[in-house]
């Protein structure tokens, strides 16, 4: 005869299924930008904003 588990234990079991996966969490961590790389990051990064995108769209439309 199988024992009847109390309600509390069932809840605990359900919660156990949603527990954190440490390996996945650690994989989310990436390296931070180092101070010596900051200047290089500025130069290599192409900064585009919404205004540039809209302007490009308008320009393409105009050209078309």
């Amino acid at each position: 005869m199988t024992p009847v588990l109390p309600f509390v234990c069932k809840t605990a079991c359900r919660e156990a299924e949603t527990m954190i996966n440490f390996d996945e969490e650690i994989a989310k961590y990436g390296p931070s930008l180092e101070i010596s790389q900051a200047e290089e990051a500025v130069l290599s990064r192409e900064i585009i904003d919404v205004a540039d995108i809209i302007e490009k769209i308008l320009q393409d439309k105009k050209d078309a």
Binding site: S32, I35, A38, A41, V42, R45, I47
Partner: peptide, 10 residues
Amino acid sequence: VALAIREWII
């Protein structure tokens, strides 16, 4: 700190 420096430089 590096991100902060980057933003200030930009």
